[in-house]
């Protein structure tokens, strides 16, 4: 069972308390009804599914109930870091060679 650090609780808690909520940093357009079909397809259907570093949303469901962002390596399953919702995508990842 993984340990996940909730950036709001500032604590590592077991995976059981969390729910994955899909890929992070996919912004909903402020003018969504004016979006083209292609743009809407990219926003709603297309996900990156990388082998390696993924940016994703998690929710501390059975804890503070906050949504936050996490960087995880899909190969090792390791969480590299977590940060609050709304914060920008981190440019430097601890312990990860560029």
């Amino acid at each position: 069972m993984l340990l996940i650090r909730c950036p709001y609780c500032e604590e590592e808690r077991p995976e059981l308390e969390f729910r994955n909520a899909g890929e992070a940093h996919i912004a909903r357009s402020a003018n969504i009804s004016g979006e083209s079909d292609d743009d809407f397809e990219k926003f709603f259907f297309i996900r990156s599914n990388p082998k390696g570093i993924i940016y994703e949303r998690w929710r501390h469901m059975h804890g503070c109930a906050r949504f936050f962002n996490a960087v995880r390596d899909t190969v090792t399953d390791k969480f590299i870091m977590t940060y609050k919702a709304g914060e920008p995508k981190p440019s430097k990842l601890p312990g990860v060679a560029k």
Binding site: A21, R28, R59, M61, A65, F67, A85, G86
Partner: peptide
């Protein structure tokens, strides 16, 4: 509830 919280916390904070 999850759907509402999701939008409230992340899209319409």
């Amino acid at each position: 509830m999850n759907h509402m919280e999701d939008y409230l916390q992340t899209e319409f904070p």
